[in-house]
Structure formats: C-alpha cells, structure tokens
C-alpha cells in the first residue's frame, strides 16, 4: 500500500518527530510494510467478521470497578528522577511563544 509523502509528514508532525529528507524516504518503506501487514488482516477477515472479537467482547460490570479510595503516591524525587526538573517541576523547552 502506497503512502503519500505528505501523509507521512503530517503524521510525523503530529507525533513531534523530525525526519531529514533521506530518513523520511527510508521510514516510508518501513511504514508501508506495517500498513500492508495490517491491511492483510483486513483482507483475511473480509466478508466474515464473526470470529473477530470486538471491543465489547471483554466487559466489566459497574460493580467491579475500582472503589474511590486515595492511596499514597510516589515520592516526588522518584517521580522526577526520570526527567529534567527544577524546583519540583518537570521542565522542557518553552512550548509557547
């Protein structure tokens, strides 16, 4: 299945990814393979979807949902240990002008 370069650029922008011209070409090939694989599933079940389990095949009853009780959270140092932080806040490069 052919993917338009424009579509890829759009997806990359949505995912906050930057591709150089050559990188995009290479990625396009890989991406087309992935889409073809998913397409294969679509063809395999074409016409008869009775054997496919839908979203609703696994359900939970209201009563079995989690009770609303607050539990202790992680220590802030632990929460922050995986990223850049300052004064207890995670920090990133400013995202608005």
């Amino acid at each position: 299945m052919a993917i338009e370069k424009q579509q890829l650029e759009h997806l990359a922008r949505l995912a906050n990814l930057e591709f150089g011209g050559e990188e995009l070409e290479k990625f396009k090939e890989g991406f087309e393979e992935m889409v073809a694989f998913c397409d294969g599933i679509n063809h395999a079940v074409a016409g008869d979807t009775s054997s496919i389990r839908g979203v609703d095949s696994r359900t939970i009853d209201f009563e079995d949902l989690r009770e609303d009780t607050a539990q202790p959270s992680l220590a802030a140092e632990k929460v922050l240990s995986n990223g850049q932080s300052s004064n207890g806040y995670f920090t990133v490069r400013r995202v608005v002008k």
Binding site: S86, G88, Y89, F90, R93, R94, V95
Partner: peptide
C-alpha cells in the same frame, strides 16, 4: 511558561 522554560506539574 516562564522565560525559556515550560514547568510541568502532573
């Protein structure tokens, strides 16, 4: 958003 950074509280 302050100066060059965005500060995040989850």
């Amino acid at each position: 958003h302050e100066r060059g950074f965005t500060y995040i509280d989850y």
